[in-house]
Design a protein around this nucleic acid. Structure first.
Length: 260
DNA sequence: ATGGCTTTCTACGAAAGA
């Protein structure tokens, strides 16, 4: 079972890359973020033509999340509970039900950026993380394989940035942001990449500006968080860097969790 | 760098991203 997270930075701009990736890697499940389109603009037919079922939660111009799956998709939830006034499309969850394997519950998460500091955007980020923690806490008693896949917009530790000093005044690296991320992990989740590669300098995002990719000035902000039952099945994690070299790429690359 | 790209919108510059 291969479960992917990928912030595509516009599903319509990246459709050819996405189809190429699906054809080459044949993942079971793909969680997408930053669709940047409304539901009626989602390229459903093209993705179904590549062999995937789809569930998506779009929004005009910004945000937007989706789950693609070669297996049936059930029990879809759109939106993160805890604030009925929140209209941003940053969360979708579903149960993936293979015919001959155990089901996985999967969420595609686009956690708020939170910049600049000292504005309502940073408060919204922290409030959203508290809502995510509460929701995860409500899911854990089910004791099922659960994969929370997404762009968390969190640099967890210094080793997760090529140049951590560049990020000290950024919402992605604030002590409060990192503490909120740890609080979610401390519910009993496993961060998949660090479970497999404890200390490697590995990144999932390279800015478009200033030759960040060419200089490997990256950060690791796309994460797979696992319930104990999912962690038991984890075999490996692959950061699929080659898409960053494709023509007109997303600034994020896919991260692939491989499960038994 | 007061963001050097990239994407979006009843666009033609501004806002958002990270």
């Amino acid at each position: 079972m291969k479960i992917v997270s990928w912030n595509v930075n516009s599903i319509r701009q990246r459709l050819e890359h996405l189809i190429n990736f699906l054809d080459k890697e044949k993942p079971d499940v793909v969680c997408l973020q930053e669709l940047k389109c409304q539901d009626d603009g989602f390229p459903r037919l093209e993705i179904e033509g590549a062999g995937y079922n789809v569930a998506f939660h779009g929004q005009k111009a910004f945000n937007g999340v989706a789950i693609l799956s070669r297996h049936p998709i059930n029990d879809i939830r759109k939106g993160l509970p805890g604030d009925e006034t929140d209209e941003q499309s940053r969360y979708i969850e579903a149960v993936i039900t293979p015919v001959d394997q155990q089901a996985f519950r999967v969420a595609s998460i686009y956690l708020p950026n939170g910049n600049p500091l000292g504005t309502p955007k940073f408060d919204y980020k922290l409030a959203w993380m508290k809502r995510l923690k509460d929701h995860v806490q409500s899911l854990l008693p089910y004791e099922e394989p659960l994969v929370l896949a997404g762009d968390y917009n969190i640099i967890p530790e210094e080793k997760d940035a090529a140049n951590p000093q560049e990020w000290v005044n950024d919402a992605l690296f604030q002590p409060e942001s990192r503490a909120a991320f740890r609080a979610i992990l401390n519910l009993g989740l496993t961060e998949a990449l660090r479970a497999c590669y404890a200390n490697d300098k590995l990144y999932t995002f390279w800015d478009y500006q200033a030759g960040a990719w060419q200089r490997n000035n990256g950060i690791r902000i796309d994460h797979l968080l696992l319930s104990p039952q999912a962690a038991d099945k984890l075999q490996d994690v692959v950061i699929y860097k080659e898409t960053r070299d494709w023509e007109k790429p997303s600034d994020h690359v896919p991260i692939i969790g491989i499960f038994s």
